[in-house]
Simulated assay, not measured.
Amino acid sequence: MATDISNYYMYQPQHVVPAVFAALIGISLLLHVYQNFRYNFWRVTFFMAWGGLVFLIGWIARVVSSYHTDNLNLYIVQTIFIYAGPPIYSAAAYNIVGRLMNYLPMYAPLNPNRVLITFVYLGALVEALTAAGAAKMSAAGDDLSRIKSGGTLMAVALVLQAVVELALVSLVGLIHFRFSRSGSEIPPNVKKLFITLYGTSTLVIVRCICRAIESFTLFGEIEKGAKHYGYILAHEWYIFAFEAVPMVLFTFWLNVFHTAHFLPRQKTRYLDLDGKTERLGPGWIDRRSTWETFADPFDLGGIFAGKPNHESFWLSPEKWPVAQDGSFAMGTTSNVAGGQINKSPEEGQILSMTHA
């Protein structure tokens, strides 16, 4: 399919399908805003609202752009915002993992308070590369060298995000392995969080791989000096199947399995070694300076010396009071104000508040 100089797309774009995705993303965004207010959980899942807003703007701009295919500004806006949304969504997962490690400090391989900062810095790099590459490609017109340089930035960003997601999945897998090896039964709230993090990260990785293939396909066509683009670039269904669908599933997954159902709002509240009781501890205590924790987040120096630099406060449960409003592990409490659930411990095994 030859490129029409009056059309910045390589095909005649759909009007209805992008509108459907915009509506779905908008519904999910409203749900996230409602849930964050209901559970007062903004500090943990703020990025779901921010990412949803950015992604929504991108798809609304694409709908408008589909009626004005010769408008460069609209084309640039929809390209940048659609590409920029997913890395922000991923930042929500980084925050969730950090909060999960605060809840399970005995199985955390590094300082939970450094997880978000480390991954968000990497995410910011992905975001910067994505925005720069998308802007350069969108404004390139018929300049193949600018298309290629912009595409290179996009490909690097996509590969980097996939690597970061693999690192996140590995971190979750390590926590999961340590918990399983401890001999304690993993409570339902933690199991569901593990499944959610595995699933949402897989969706992001699939999206990154498919988008990277798209970018490398573009490189191949440019290298051949082709005036006609390959099948992937000339068909719109590819962006729907491998950009919109995975991220719509991602955002609704975190609507249905919102973290506020499974983890306490307070980061100092942790699960005791019995896998049932929750206590109000001091939070993660690292005796090193801030710069040392950045330079050696896994405290390898302390581990090899046989003297870890963090306090194992969970080994002295008698020092820390039991949470009096119930337990997320037992399904007997909620983040809703006054949300204690009047249940017996046996009934609490069923997380009836999971989808409240």
Score class of each variant (00 low, 15 high):
I76C: 08
T268L: 00
F250D: 09
P321C: 14
V120D: 12
F262S: 05
F328A: 10
Q349M: 09
L31E: 00
G348F: 04
L116Q: 06
R211W: 00
Y107W: 15
F298T: 06
G141K: 14
I60F: 09
E236M: 05
N111Y: 05
A323Y: 11
L168Y: 00
G98F: 02
D296F: 09
L174H: 03
P187S: 09
R288S: 08
K276I: 00
H355T: 12
I60C: 14
T293I: 10
P345Q: 03
V64Q: 06
E292K: 14
H235Q: 07
P105V: 11
S344C: 11
L280I: 15
A92R: 05
D4H: 02
T152V: 07
P13C: 02
A124L: 15
Y231M: 05
V190P: 05
Q78E: 14
G326C: 02
K307H: 13
P246Q: 04
A356L: 03
Y11T: 06
K224Q: 13
G85E: 09
R114S: 14
M101G: 07
S352R: 15
V206W: 03
S28F: 09
A295F: 08
N95V: 03
I96Q: 04
T259F: 08
V126P: 11
G331H: 15
G306L: 09
P187Q: 10
H228I: 11
I57H: 08
L233I: 05
S170E: 02
G26H: 04
L300A: 13
A167S: 11
L273A: 13
R146Q: 15
V120I: 02
M353D: 00
H228Y: 10
W284T: 07
H310Y: 10
E292I: 04
D274C: 09
R114V: 02
I57T: 13
I232A: 02
E221Q: 04
A108G: 04
C208Y: 08
Y8Q: 04
E311W: 11
I186W: 00
V256N: 00
L129R: 12
K307V: 12
G225C: 08
G133L: 03
P317L: 01
Y238E: 03
H261Y: 09
S327Y: 06
R43F: 08
G183C: 04
S201Q: 01
G183D: 06
R181W: 07
I60V: 14
H15F: 00
N73G: 00
A132L: 06
L53R: 01
P188I: 01
T79N: 07
L53P: 01
I209T: 02
P86R: 15
F242V: 03
E223T: 07
E292D: 02
N335I: 08
H228L: 15
K343L: 14
A139V: 05
G199A: 11
A241T: 13
L300I: 15
L53M: 11
Q78N: 13
L56F: 15
L31R: 13
Y238V: 13
E214G: 10
S352L: 07
F262D: 00
P112A: 06
I232E: 10
I175W: 08
P297D: 07
N335R: 01
F194Q: 04
V64D: 03
G51F: 09
Y231V: 06
P345D: 12
V256Y: 15
R43C: 00
I117L: 08
Q324S: 06
T200A: 09
V115S: 05
Y89D: 01
E223D: 11
E223V: 10
L100D: 00
F47H: 11
A157D: 12
M10L: 09
R211P: 13
K192M: 14
